[in-house]
Simulated assay, not measured.
Amino acid sequence: MRVIFHIDFDYFFAQCEEIRNQTLKTKPVCVCIFSDRGGDSGAIATANYIARKYGVKSGMPIKFAKARLREIPESAFLPADFPYYSEISQKAMEIMKSYADVFEYVGRDEAYLDVTKRSEGSFAIATHLAQQLKNQIRAELKMTCTVGISTNKLVSKIASGFRKPDGLTVVEPEKTESFLAQLNVGDIPGIGKVTGEKFAELNIKTISDLARLDVFTLNKMFGKKIASYMYNAARGIDDDPVAERAPAVQYSRIITLKQDSKDLAFLSDALDEICADLHETILKHRKMFKSVGIQFVQSDLSNKTKSRMLKNPTSSLDELKKTAVILLQEALADQDQNVRRLGVRISELSDITGQRSIENFF
Protein backbone atom coordinates (compact mmCIF):
# COMPACT_ATOMS: atom_id res chain seq x y z
CA MET A 1 0.00 0.00 0.00
CA ARG A 2 1.38 3.38 -1.04
CA VAL A 3 1.51 6.49 1.15
CA ILE A 4 1.45 9.69 -0.91
CA PHE A 5 1.70 13.37 0.08
CA HIS A 6 0.38 16.21 -2.02
CA ILE A 7 1.84 19.52 -0.83
CA ASP A 8 0.35 22.83 -1.89
CA PHE A 9 1.60 26.22 -0.70
CA ASP A 10 -1.05 28.69 0.41
CA TYR A 11 -1.27 31.79 -1.85
CA PHE A 12 2.40 31.20 -2.71
CA PHE A 13 3.38 34.40 -4.54
CA ALA A 14 1.66 36.60 -1.94
CA GLN A 15 3.30 34.61 0.89
CA CYS A 16 6.68 35.25 -0.70
CA GLU A 17 5.91 38.98 -0.64
CA GLU A 18 4.91 38.73 3.04
CA ILE A 19 8.30 37.16 3.83
CA ARG A 20 9.99 40.14 2.22
CA ASN A 21 7.75 42.67 4.00
CA GLN A 22 6.21 41.46 7.25
CA THR A 23 3.82 44.45 7.42
CA LEU A 24 1.85 42.93 4.53
CA LYS A 25 0.58 40.03 6.66
CA THR A 26 -2.36 42.08 7.98
CA LYS A 27 -3.30 43.67 4.66
CA PRO A 28 -4.97 42.53 1.43
CA VAL A 29 -2.12 41.56 -0.92
CA CYS A 30 -2.52 41.08 -4.67
CA VAL A 31 0.38 39.94 -6.84
CA CYS A 32 -0.21 41.30 -10.33
CA ILE A 33 0.86 40.55 -13.87
CA PHE A 34 0.91 44.07 -15.30
CA SER A 35 0.74 44.30 -19.08
CA ASP A 36 2.93 46.67 -21.11
CA ARG A 37 -0.08 48.91 -21.71
CA GLY A 38 0.41 50.78 -18.46
CA GLY A 39 -1.99 51.76 -15.71
CA ASP A 40 -4.08 48.95 -14.29
CA SER A 41 -3.94 46.82 -17.42
CA GLY A 42 -3.27 43.20 -16.45
CA ALA A 43 -4.53 40.45 -14.15
CA ILE A 44 -4.20 39.11 -10.61
CA ALA A 45 -1.75 36.20 -10.32
CA THR A 46 -2.41 35.45 -6.63
CA ALA A 47 -4.26 37.11 -3.76
CA ASN A 48 -3.82 36.40 -0.07
CA TYR A 49 -6.76 35.22 2.03
CA ILE A 50 -7.55 38.70 3.31
CA ALA A 51 -8.02 39.93 -0.27
CA ARG A 52 -10.01 36.80 -1.15
CA LYS A 53 -12.57 37.67 1.52
CA TYR A 54 -13.46 40.66 -0.67
CA GLY A 55 -13.93 38.49 -3.76
CA VAL A 56 -10.51 38.99 -5.31
CA LYS A 57 -9.21 35.88 -7.10
CA SER A 58 -6.57 34.72 -9.57
CA GLY A 59 -7.18 35.77 -13.16
CA MET A 60 -9.34 38.75 -12.21
CA PRO A 61 -8.49 42.01 -14.05
CA ILE A 62 -6.51 44.33 -11.78
CA LYS A 63 -9.02 47.17 -12.16
CA PHE A 64 -11.84 44.88 -10.93
CA ALA A 65 -9.74 43.79 -7.94
CA LYS A 66 -9.03 47.42 -7.05
CA ALA A 67 -12.75 48.16 -7.20
CA ARG A 68 -13.41 45.31 -4.73
CA LEU A 69 -10.77 46.72 -2.37
CA ARG A 70 -11.44 50.44 -2.90
CA GLU A 71 -12.49 50.92 0.75
CA ILE A 72 -9.19 49.49 2.03
CA PRO A 73 -6.49 52.04 1.09
CA GLU A 74 -3.69 49.96 2.59
CA SER A 75 -4.28 47.16 0.04
CA ALA A 76 -1.07 46.20 -1.76
CA PHE A 77 -0.94 45.61 -5.53
CA LEU A 78 2.57 44.33 -6.27
CA PRO A 79 4.22 43.37 -9.57
CA ALA A 80 5.11 39.68 -9.81
CA ASP A 81 8.78 38.93 -9.11
CA PHE A 82 9.20 35.44 -10.56
CA PRO A 83 12.97 35.09 -10.06
CA TYR A 84 12.46 35.76 -6.33
CA TYR A 85 9.53 33.31 -6.14
CA SER A 86 11.61 30.65 -7.90
CA GLU A 87 14.40 31.15 -5.37
CA ILE A 88 11.99 30.62 -2.45
CA SER A 89 10.41 27.65 -4.26
CA GLN A 90 13.78 25.98 -4.74
CA LYS A 91 14.50 26.21 -1.02
CA ALA A 92 11.07 24.73 -0.23
CA MET A 93 11.52 21.90 -2.71
CA GLU A 94 14.89 20.97 -1.20
CA ILE A 95 13.22 20.64 2.21
CA MET A 96 10.45 18.46 0.74
CA LYS A 97 12.89 16.23 -1.12
CA SER A 98 14.58 15.36 2.17
CA TYR A 99 11.33 13.72 3.35
CA ALA A 100 10.55 11.74 0.18
CA ASP A 101 11.38 8.31 -1.17
CA VAL A 102 10.34 9.67 -4.58
CA PHE A 103 9.78 13.38 -5.26
CA GLU A 104 7.67 14.78 -8.11
CA TYR A 105 7.87 18.51 -8.82
CA VAL A 106 4.60 19.89 -10.20
CA GLY A 107 5.13 23.65 -10.04
CA ARG A 108 6.67 26.42 -7.95
CA ASP A 109 4.11 25.84 -5.20
CA GLU A 110 3.15 22.19 -5.57
CA ALA A 111 4.69 18.71 -5.34
CA TYR A 112 3.93 15.02 -4.73
CA LEU A 113 5.98 12.86 -2.34
CA ASP A 114 5.92 9.07 -2.14
CA VAL A 115 6.81 8.33 1.50
CA THR A 116 5.83 4.65 1.54
CA LYS A 117 9.23 3.35 2.70
CA ARG A 118 9.99 6.23 5.01
CA SER A 119 6.63 5.87 6.75
CA GLU A 120 6.82 2.05 6.76
CA GLY A 121 3.36 2.13 5.18
CA SER A 122 1.91 3.59 8.39
CA PHE A 123 -0.45 6.56 8.17
CA ALA A 124 0.35 7.44 11.78
CA ILE A 125 4.05 7.75 10.96
CA ALA A 126 3.20 9.59 7.72
CA THR A 127 1.11 12.13 9.66
CA HIS A 128 4.03 12.77 11.99
CA LEU A 129 6.38 13.18 8.99
CA ALA A 130 4.00 15.66 7.37
CA GLN A 131 3.79 17.74 10.53
CA GLN A 132 7.59 17.75 10.81
CA LEU A 133 7.83 18.89 7.19
CA LYS A 134 5.31 21.70 7.77
CA ASN A 135 7.16 22.79 10.91
CA GLN A 136 10.52 22.87 9.11
CA ILE A 137 9.12 24.95 6.24
CA ARG A 138 7.55 27.36 8.73
CA ALA A 139 10.79 27.63 10.74
CA GLU A 140 13.16 28.04 7.80
CA LEU A 141 11.02 29.93 5.27
CA LYS A 142 8.31 31.55 7.45
CA MET A 143 5.71 30.00 5.13
CA THR A 144 2.68 27.75 5.49
CA CYS A 145 1.65 24.88 3.26
CA THR A 146 -1.22 22.42 3.18
CA VAL A 147 -0.69 18.66 2.98
CA GLY A 148 -3.04 15.91 1.83
CA ILE A 149 -2.18 12.27 2.60
CA SER A 150 -3.73 9.14 1.08
CA THR A 151 -2.82 6.03 -0.90
CA ASN A 152 -2.70 7.85 -4.26
CA LYS A 153 -2.04 11.17 -5.97
CA LEU A 154 -5.65 11.95 -6.83
CA VAL A 155 -7.11 11.63 -3.33
CA SER A 156 -4.08 13.36 -1.78
CA LYS A 157 -4.57 16.34 -4.11
CA ILE A 158 -8.25 16.54 -3.22
CA ALA A 159 -7.34 16.23 0.47
CA SER A 160 -4.82 19.09 0.29
CA GLY A 161 -7.61 21.38 -0.89
CA PHE A 162 -9.97 20.27 1.86
CA ARG A 163 -8.64 22.34 4.75
CA LYS A 164 -6.82 25.53 3.76
CA PRO A 165 -4.72 27.41 4.67
CA ASP A 166 -2.06 25.59 6.69
CA GLY A 167 -4.05 22.35 6.73
CA LEU A 168 -3.23 18.67 7.11
CA THR A 169 -5.81 16.11 5.97
CA VAL A 170 -5.24 12.36 6.20
CA VAL A 171 -7.49 9.99 4.25
CA GLU A 172 -6.85 6.40 5.29
CA PRO A 173 -7.84 3.68 2.77
CA GLU A 174 -10.99 2.58 4.62
CA LYS A 175 -12.19 6.20 4.84
CA THR A 176 -11.68 7.15 1.18
CA GLU A 177 -15.28 6.56 0.12
CA SER A 178 -16.84 8.48 3.03
CA PHE A 179 -14.33 11.35 2.62
CA LEU A 180 -15.08 11.79 -1.08
CA ALA A 181 -18.84 11.35 -0.73
CA GLN A 182 -19.29 14.62 1.16
CA LEU A 183 -17.41 16.77 -1.39
CA ASN A 184 -18.72 18.72 -4.37
CA VAL A 185 -18.17 17.11 -7.75
CA GLY A 186 -16.12 20.18 -8.72
CA ASP A 187 -13.50 19.20 -6.13
CA ILE A 188 -12.29 16.48 -8.52
CA PRO A 189 -9.26 17.84 -10.41
CA GLY A 190 -10.09 18.48 -14.06
CA ILE A 191 -13.82 19.08 -13.58
CA GLY A 192 -14.28 22.68 -14.61
CA LYS A 193 -17.15 25.09 -15.02
CA VAL A 194 -18.64 23.59 -18.21
CA THR A 195 -18.59 20.00 -16.93
CA GLY A 196 -19.94 21.18 -13.58
CA GLU A 197 -22.87 22.87 -15.33
CA LYS A 198 -23.61 19.64 -17.20
CA PHE A 199 -23.72 17.73 -13.94
CA ALA A 200 -25.87 20.42 -12.31
CA GLU A 201 -28.48 19.96 -15.05
CA LEU A 202 -28.66 16.31 -13.99
CA ASN A 203 -28.77 17.29 -10.29
CA ILE A 204 -25.35 15.73 -9.72
CA LYS A 205 -23.83 17.93 -7.02
CA THR A 206 -21.61 15.72 -4.87
CA ILE A 207 -19.02 13.05 -5.61
CA SER A 208 -21.40 10.49 -4.13
CA ASP A 209 -23.97 11.57 -6.75
CA LEU A 210 -21.36 11.05 -9.45
CA ALA A 211 -20.44 7.62 -8.06
CA ARG A 212 -24.01 6.47 -8.69
CA LEU A 213 -23.60 6.93 -12.47
CA ASP A 214 -22.45 3.86 -14.37
CA VAL A 215 -19.56 4.06 -16.81
CA PHE A 216 -21.83 3.60 -19.84
CA THR A 217 -23.81 6.73 -18.99
CA LEU A 218 -20.59 8.67 -18.52
CA ASN A 219 -19.30 7.32 -21.86
CA LYS A 220 -22.31 8.78 -23.65
CA MET A 221 -21.81 12.15 -21.95
CA PHE A 222 -18.05 12.61 -22.24
CA GLY A 223 -16.42 9.86 -24.30
CA LYS A 224 -14.45 6.85 -23.10
CA LYS A 225 -11.26 8.49 -21.80
CA ILE A 226 -12.89 11.21 -19.68
CA ALA A 227 -15.65 8.85 -18.56
CA SER A 228 -13.08 6.34 -17.29
CA TYR A 229 -11.26 9.07 -15.35
CA MET A 230 -14.46 10.36 -13.72
CA TYR A 231 -15.72 6.89 -12.88
CA ASN A 232 -12.44 6.04 -11.12
CA ALA A 233 -12.04 9.47 -9.52
CA ALA A 234 -15.47 9.25 -7.89
CA ARG A 235 -14.26 6.04 -6.23
CA GLY A 236 -10.82 7.35 -5.30
CA ILE A 237 -9.03 5.07 -7.76
CA ASP A 238 -5.72 6.29 -9.20
CA ASP A 239 -2.71 4.12 -10.12
CA ASP A 240 -0.50 6.96 -11.43
CA PRO A 241 2.84 6.64 -9.60
CA VAL A 242 4.83 9.50 -8.11
CA ALA A 243 7.71 9.92 -10.54
CA GLU A 244 10.69 12.21 -10.92
CA ARG A 245 9.64 14.99 -13.28
CA ALA A 246 11.21 14.85 -16.73
CA PRO A 247 13.41 17.78 -17.78
CA ALA A 248 11.71 20.70 -19.50
CA VAL A 249 10.89 19.84 -23.12
CA GLN A 250 10.47 23.46 -24.16
CA TYR A 251 10.89 27.05 -23.07
CA SER A 252 8.54 29.84 -24.07
CA ARG A 253 7.83 33.52 -23.47
CA ILE A 254 4.75 35.52 -24.43
CA ILE A 255 4.06 39.24 -23.89
CA THR A 256 1.15 41.63 -24.29
CA LEU A 257 2.11 44.33 -26.79
CA LYS A 258 1.85 48.01 -25.91
CA GLN A 259 -0.66 48.32 -28.75
CA ASP A 260 -2.40 45.96 -31.15
CA SER A 261 -0.50 45.94 -34.45
CA LYS A 262 0.43 43.95 -37.56
CA ASP A 263 3.37 46.18 -38.47
CA LEU A 264 6.37 43.94 -39.11
CA ALA A 265 8.96 46.40 -37.79
CA PHE A 266 7.04 46.96 -34.54
CA LEU A 267 6.47 43.24 -34.00
CA SER A 268 10.09 42.41 -34.90
CA ASP A 269 11.35 44.73 -32.17
CA ALA A 270 9.15 42.89 -29.67
CA LEU A 271 10.44 39.54 -30.98
CA ASP A 272 14.03 40.67 -30.39
CA GLU A 273 13.30 41.30 -26.72
CA ILE A 274 11.52 37.94 -26.31
CA CYS A 275 14.32 36.04 -28.04
CA ALA A 276 16.98 37.74 -25.91
CA ASP A 277 15.08 36.70 -22.77
CA LEU A 278 14.77 33.08 -23.99
CA HIS A 279 18.43 33.03 -24.95
CA GLU A 280 19.44 33.92 -21.38
CA THR A 281 17.34 31.01 -20.15
CA ILE A 282 18.88 28.39 -22.43
CA LEU A 283 22.43 29.54 -21.66
CA LYS A 284 21.65 29.38 -17.94
CA HIS A 285 20.43 25.79 -18.34
CA ARG A 286 23.15 24.93 -20.89
CA LYS A 287 20.65 23.90 -23.56
CA MET A 288 20.51 23.92 -27.35
CA PHE A 289 17.31 23.94 -29.39
CA LYS A 290 16.33 22.53 -32.77
CA SER A 291 12.74 23.79 -33.11
CA VAL A 292 11.52 27.39 -33.07
CA GLY A 293 7.89 28.46 -32.98
CA ILE A 294 5.96 31.68 -32.71
CA GLN A 295 2.51 32.23 -31.26
CA PHE A 296 0.29 35.25 -31.30
CA VAL A 297 -3.09 36.17 -29.96
CA GLN A 298 -5.10 38.33 -32.34
CA SER A 299 -7.39 41.24 -31.49
CA ASP A 300 -10.39 38.89 -31.40
CA LEU A 301 -8.41 36.71 -28.92
CA SER A 302 -8.00 33.84 -31.41
CA ASN A 303 -4.61 32.10 -31.51
CA LYS A 304 -2.20 31.48 -34.36
CA THR A 305 1.03 29.46 -34.32
CA LYS A 306 3.85 28.61 -36.73
CA SER A 307 7.00 26.56 -36.16
CA ARG A 308 10.10 25.36 -37.98
CA MET A 309 12.66 22.60 -37.40
CA LEU A 310 16.30 23.63 -37.85
CA LYS A 311 18.92 21.46 -39.54
CA ASN A 312 21.10 21.26 -36.43
CA PRO A 313 20.74 22.02 -32.72
CA THR A 314 22.06 25.45 -31.76
CA SER A 315 22.10 27.97 -28.94
CA SER A 316 22.73 30.93 -31.25
CA LEU A 317 20.74 34.07 -30.50
CA ASP A 318 21.11 35.23 -34.12
CA GLU A 319 19.66 31.94 -35.38
CA LEU A 320 16.77 32.23 -32.94
CA LYS A 321 15.96 35.81 -33.97
CA LYS A 322 16.32 35.11 -37.69
CA THR A 323 14.03 32.07 -37.59
CA ALA A 324 11.43 33.83 -35.44
CA VAL A 325 11.27 36.80 -37.84
CA ILE A 326 10.89 34.51 -40.87
CA LEU A 327 8.00 32.70 -39.14
CA LEU A 328 6.45 36.05 -38.27
CA GLN A 329 6.67 37.25 -41.88
CA GLU A 330 5.03 34.04 -43.10
CA ALA A 331 2.26 34.32 -40.52
CA LEU A 332 1.56 37.97 -41.35
CA ALA A 333 1.31 37.26 -45.09
CA ASP A 334 -2.29 36.09 -44.72
CA GLN A 335 -3.06 38.08 -41.58
CA ASP A 336 -6.05 40.42 -41.58
CA GLN A 337 -6.16 41.19 -37.85
CA ASN A 338 -3.84 43.02 -35.52
CA VAL A 339 -1.69 41.09 -33.06
CA ARG A 340 -2.39 41.63 -29.34
CA ARG A 341 0.05 39.17 -27.70
CA LEU A 342 3.22 37.74 -29.19
CA GLY A 343 5.34 34.81 -28.07
CA VAL A 344 8.26 32.55 -29.00
CA ARG A 345 8.75 28.87 -28.14
CA ILE A 346 11.91 26.76 -28.45
CA SER A 347 11.84 22.98 -28.17
CA GLU A 348 13.66 19.77 -29.20
CA LEU A 349 16.15 20.63 -26.48
CA SER A 350 19.53 19.00 -25.91
CA ASP A 351 22.44 19.64 -23.56
CA ILE A 352 25.41 21.77 -24.56
CA THR A 353 28.27 19.30 -24.30
CA GLY A 354 31.03 21.55 -25.60
CA GLN A 355 31.58 24.86 -27.36
CA ARG A 356 30.99 23.83 -30.96
CA SER A 357 31.62 27.31 -32.29
CA ILE A 358 31.87 30.84 -30.97
CA GLU A 359 28.58 31.92 -32.57
CA ASN A 360 26.65 29.25 -30.69
CA PHE A 361 27.00 31.41 -27.60
CA PHE A 362 26.25 34.88 -28.96
Rank of each mutant, 00 (worst) to 15 (best):
R253F: 00
K57W: 13
T176R: 02
R68Y: 12
F34K: 05
N21V: 00
Y229R: 03
S41T: 04
D240T: 13
H128C: 03
R308W: 11
L69W: 03
S156H: 04
S315E: 15
S252C: 02
K284A: 14
G59P: 02
D351W: 05
K284W: 03
R212Y: 01
K287H: 13
D8R: 03
A76W: 05
V325Q: 13
P79E: 08
D114W: 01
R356P: 00
K224M: 04
T127K: 14
Q132H: 06
A100N: 05
A43Y: 09
Q132C: 10
Q295N: 11
K164C: 14
Q298R: 15
I4L: 00
S208H: 08
V292I: 15
V56G: 15
A139G: 02
E330C: 05
S347N: 06
I274G: 04
A76M: 10
G293F: 10
L133G: 06
S347P: 07
I237D: 01
T305M: 06
E177T: 14
Y85M: 03
K63F: 13
Q131Y: 03
K57Y: 15
Y99S: 13
F179E: 01
P189E: 13
Q355P: 00
E17F: 08
R118T: 06
K304I: 09
A139R: 09
D36R: 15
A111R: 02
A14E: 08
D40A: 08
K91T: 08
R212Q: 14
K225M: 07
G167Q: 12
N360G: 07
A265W: 02
P247D: 15
H285A: 13
S58M: 13
Q131P: 00
E17T: 07
E174G: 01
T26Q: 12
V31P: 04
A270Q: 12
I282R: 14
T169F: 05
S350I: 09
K258M: 11
F77L: 10
